[in-house]
Simulated scan of single mutants.
Amino acid sequence: MKSIFAFILLTLSTFTMADTWDEISKEGKITLGVANERPYGYLTPMGEPAGEAPSIAMYVLDKLGVDDVEVVVTEFGSLIPGLKAGRFDVIAAGMYVNPKRCKQVLFSNPTYTIGEGFLVLDGNPKGLHGYGDVKKADGVKMGVMAGAVEFGYAKKFGVPLDRIVTLPDYPAGVAALKAGRIDALAGTSLTMAQLAQKDERVELAQPFDELKIEGESVKGYGAFGFRKGDETLRDNFNRVLDGFLGTEQHVSMVEEYGFGKHTLPGDVTTQELCN
């Protein structure tokens, strides 16, 4: 009786632990999650996937024989919960790899590295050129996107919590900046530059003081995210990425989004970033 019961438990465990890749490879269908954030991952007005991460993902999936790709748009802070809940199979949003996130999801090898930047009102009336300016200036507030790394950066840097305003997304951040609710919007330099191009009332803060925390230069490394247990899917992505990143085809593919040879991640590994 015990042996039968043990067999049933083993069978159920095997069924529930089935790798997502088995289903994807059979059906040829996969779902990507994006946060509609240019230039990392978004949908065009025609509903087509675009941005650095979806473009690379489409190339990888084609090489893996997966030709039916659906894209789900959600807020950045809902990407990991949505992945874990099964709303999509891969986070294709240029998400930074860090130890906290590594406890919740698997990451591919990084596909790019980039530094930070501020979006400010035209003319930069408060003279904000880095986190240090926000830290030392009474009454100045900086905005960060919910779920993004900038909140942690500001906290570790020593910016008082009452000067950090959390916003649901970057359009809300731009609106808050123009309305005077915040004095600077923090994000990656690429995202801030993209937002500045869309509205003449705001600009990218230049020059920008390199962000350093505890003496270490802070740069983000973006990668694809997968559910725990989907190692095969992650490994298949990595296998294709290893032979693609840094090639002429890769560089030309991402240049229109502001990426290129200057944003290649080099020899930095996900294991190092997770540790």
Rank of each mutant, 00 (worst) to 15 (best):
E27Y: 03
G28C: 05
G28S: 07
I30L: 13
T31V: 14
L32S: 02
L32E: 01
L32G: 07
G33Y: 00
G33L: 01
V34C: 01
V34Y: 00
V34T: 09
V34F: 01
V34M: 00
E37Q: 15
E37G: 00
R38M: 13
P39I: 01
Y40T: 10
L43Q: 02
T44I: 07
M46D: 15
M46Q: 15
G47W: 11
G47Y: 11
G47V: 10
P49M: 05
G51V: 13
G51W: 12
E52F: 07
E52S: 12
E52K: 10
E52D: 04
A53D: 12
A53F: 02
S55F: 00
S55A: 12
A57H: 07
A57P: 03
A57Q: 09
A57V: 02
A57F: 05
M58I: 05
V60D: 10
V60R: 04
D62W: 05
D62G: 15
D62S: 14
K63P: 07
K63Y: 03
K63N: 09
K63T: 03
K63G: 02
G65M: 10
G65Y: 12
G65T: 10
V66H: 07
V66F: 12
D67Q: 11
D67R: 15
D68P: 01
V69L: 06
V69G: 10
V69I: 15
E70G: 10
E70V: 02
V71N: 10
V73N: 12
V73T: 14
E75S: 06
E75G: 07
E75Q: 14
F76P: 00
G77E: 13
G77Q: 12
G77C: 02
S78W: 11
S78F: 06
S78G: 04
L79E: 06
I80N: 08
I80T: 11
I80F: 04
I80V: 14
P81H: 04
G82W: 00
L83M: 08
L83W: 09
L83V: 06
K84R: 13
K84V: 11
G86D: 06
R87G: 00
R87L: 03
V90N: 04
I91S: 00
I91W: 00
A92G: 00
A93Y: 06
M95F: 05
Y96H: 13
N98R: 14
N98P: 05
P99N: 06
P99I: 07
P99L: 08
R101W: 03
R101P: 05
R101L: 06
